[in-house]
Design a protein around this nucleic acid. Structure first.
Lengths: 380, 380
DNA sequence: TGGGTTTACTGTATCGGTATAGAAGCCAGT
DNA sequence: ACTGGCTTCTATACCGATACAGTAAACCCA
């Protein structure tokens, strides 16, 4: 049986189509328009998706008719199935989107990503690693053309699903894996610069406040580097690269991020150490700002009594009083690079370009920005 | 011809399926699994989507086989087409996602939305009103189950497309429209409280700094309220409701938001007025903070010389020195209400519930939070 | 033993598009 | 008149699932 016209409402000679906004009155599809105009469905499809395939006159007629019928353009879901691409890419974030949005640095990355995405016309779909047993797991069930995996636990179910779907993907702020493009910043190098800066200022009693969503927490020995997130490991590694050879053994405190009370508690604990450190290397500007505030609350002056160095150079760094010395990274560049890598990967797949040989790993530079939160070690 | 098995690779008696990660080696679909297990495709589908429709034993066998074949679950695009739902909802934001992400208040809303969305398992897709002539317009071409329209120009092409698609939608911070659910805050009431507070403190020379992404800009007469965004109109209305009857005619300055230099310029212009105002009512905390800083730069004390009131009670309000008196609104509640309204609308559609009668319009309360940026008018 | 329910699967018809290989008409060149 | 090459449009075969009606066997109670 011929498809379309025969089983549609509008075949009834009378012609007039039921009108005006009633929900689901026999939906308008390409076929509806085709019947009305008297051409094949394919031609109508071309009118929308490949204008060069039909005469301008006919196309105009088709578009006009579509307009009259209130057609909203080819159905995205159907188009996605037929074409094999959806026009959206996913970003896999932490467990809770809510905390991601409250993190100024994460939103900075998202801003960069959406900026880079704008010219491509791709939409951005937010995914979580949330392990909730909610029948639907976005990473498995949402249609996307590719994904950015941003600073996630590599072992999470969500990343496993994305892998399984064999989607183009790019790892951001995560340990590179063979065959998967990745974008990272030079965490280790930046950390070294920060540590060196402290040594240059004469500090010998140095503390490290290191954060990672995955344990262990509390006091850390310099040896326990496994089980930490990649970024944590890299920064910690960089600090130690410089401190240990100089004979400085830092106190390392590891705490769970995104829990303001715990942050402050960690800061207090640090300042209450028997041999109070004269300088603190912080995992992020966020925790650094907590340290600064906590220090000020207990009557310590920054930087005179305590030098503090952050990481990331997020907006809070310059807002802080005193302005924070920190390791700068270029989020915008990170976002751009990530999008570039992902779109390249998507294109590669669609053009059948084989060769996974070129799984490029981008490493963006970091640099130390010296502001007002660091100064020479106090004379003892 | 029977579909499936006959035109697939795995019918070759030999059984062994080509293996290991080569791209596109005859994709694994429900049919592949069905053939392998020896059941119908439908049963395999049920194994994934409706576990109660088959015996646990068979389901286990199917799942195991799927696992072996590296099947990643029903294809989202195909499923979306067949089921008519995608598992994602869209949020339509300003022209540039990039500015949306840099706006602390917008991200607060997104945080609330994603928080409210988490338990539903729906993903969040970001859409822009971007008028770029980029063949693909997300609002038209991305598959979603519904959309939140957040503080957008109601006349934009993107909203027009969403309307046209007849998608469930909810207007947020926008003029309600008949038949469309909406969520707003009591901008007008809040503005009245702010203005009244100033009057109570004895201020008579009051300025208003009003922002709207859509023109006109510069000095505004009290009569030109058309062409402004809904929120701007409401807040302006509220301020004037109180000021005018009290015989106070404010100077109104309107500027374009998200352009830091312009913000500061507007603030300077305002402070340089021949009869310098003793108090400023600001459209947002962001602009209020610019006013405070600008005032301090030109040597004015806040609040002794100049009282400043913000709007929104965003994080910056408490960070500011002095802490900002502002009109509080509950973003979290707004996000929750918006999601609730949208999911309700989606459910209503799918259950064929007719009655657009209940197009509810939520109006959330606002309240004045008095902090340290306001005080009695200085004696002249 | 027989009718009424359940349980467990299957068959067929979509969902609304796009890809691709033609077919028909037309025009220039030889 | 024949050939080749455009430009336009059409026919057919998918894309990979779900909905729904139906069927066969098993179970249940009188």
């Amino acid at each position: 049986m011929q498809r379309g016209s025969l089983n549609r409402a509008n075949v009834t000679g009378k012609g007039e189509v039921a009108d005006e906004g009633w929900i689901g009155v026999a939906r308008v599809t390409l076929q509806t328009i085709a019947d009305r105009v008297g051409v094949s469905r394919m031609t109508v499809s071309n009118a929308f998706s490949r204008p060069d395939q039909l005469s301008p006159a006919l196309r105009a007629r088709i578009l006009t008719t579509a307009e009259e019928l209130g057609y909203a353009g080819p159905d995205p879901a159907a188009r996605a199935l037929a074409k094999g691409s959806t026009g959206a890419i996913g970003v896999l974030l932490t467990d809770s989107l809510q905390v991601a949005f409250t993190d100024e640095f994460a939103t900075g990355f998202l801003a960069a990503v959406s900026g880079a995405l704008a010219p491509t016309g791709l939409a951005l779909t937010l995914l979580t690693t949330s392990p909730q047993q909610h029948a639907v797991i976005p990473a498995r069930d949402v249609a996307i053309d590719g994904a950015l995996i941003y600073s996630c636990d590599p072992g999470s179910a969500a990343t496993a699903w994305l892998r399984r779907r064999n989607l183009p993907m790019v790892l951001v702020d995560q340990a590179p894996e063979p065959g998967v493009p990745s974008v990272n910043i030079d965490d280790r190098g930046g950390a070294r610069l920060a540590a060196q800066h402290l040594l240059d200022l004469g500090h010998r009693r140095v503390a490290i406040l290191s954060s990672s969503a995955i344990g262990p927490f509390g006091r850390l020995s310099t040896m326990q580097l496994e089980g930490l997130s990649n970024t944590t490991r890299a920064r910690l590694g960089g600090w130690l690269d410089v401190l240990l050879p100089a004979g400085v053994t830092p106190v390392i405190l590891q705490y769970q991020p995104y829990q303001p009370e715990l942050d402050a508690a960690a800061a207090r604990e640090l300042l209450a150490l028997p041999e109070r450190p004269t300088a603190v290397l912080c995992f992020s500007d966020a925790i650094a700002s907590t340290v600064v505030r906590t220090a000020q609350q207990v009557g310590l002056r920054v930087p005179e009594d305590l030098s503090v160095i952050g990481f990331d150079d997020s907006p809070v760094a310059t807002r802080l009083e005193p302005a924070l010395t920190t390791v700068h990274q270029d989020v915008a560049a990170k976002g751009t690079a990530a999008v570039a890598a992902l779109t390249a990967e998507i294109r590669r797949r669609s053009t059948g370009g084989s060769d996974r040989s070129t799984a490029d790993e981008v490493l963006l530079p970091t640099r130390l920005v010296i502001r007002d939160s660091t100064s020479s070690a106090p004379h003892r």
